[in-house]
């Protein structure tokens, strides 16, 4: 279990524990965190699971695939250097303390 902080669109901070192998998207939607639609269920086909990654453990994240990069070009909220698709980030112990900020809109 790795502890991650989500910041919902309205600003509320929610800490959840995520099992290894689960994606940020799966963990957030299954635990009721606001701000992710994830229409395609994690197939990297909808770009409605956009998030901004903050905090020091972000350095441990694998770089996005070409598919993810192309989808990130099409998110509805502002695309920032720390934009990622939460369905493409799998939990691993070295991400403890990661902060995941939700954008204002997904669609």
């Amino acid at each position: 279990m790795t502890r991650i902080t989500f910041i919902e669109p309205q600003g509320a901070e929610v800490e959840i524990d995520i099992a290894d192998g689960w994606t940020l998207m799966q963990a957030a939607t299954s635990q009721g965190v606001e701000g992710i639609e994830a229409e395609c269920g994690g197939s990297c086909a909808c770009a409605t699971c956009h998030c901004y990654i903050e905090g020091e453990p972000a350095a441990h994240l694998p770089t996005p695939t070409q598919t993810e990069l192309e989808m990130l070009d099409n998110v509805v909220a502002a695309r920032l250097p720390n934009s990622r698709l939460s369905c493409q980030i799998k939990m691993a112990p070295d991400l403890e303390g990661l902060i995941v900020r939700m954008p204002e809109a997904q669609s």
Binding site: W22, T23, Q26, T29, S30, Q31, G32, A38, G41, G42
Partner: peptide, 12 residues
């Protein structure tokens, strides 16, 4: 991992 929204969502 196929579940679209979890129990916490329905409660909330």
């Amino acid at each position: 991992q196929l579940t679209i929204r979890g129990a916490e969502f329905f409660a909330k």
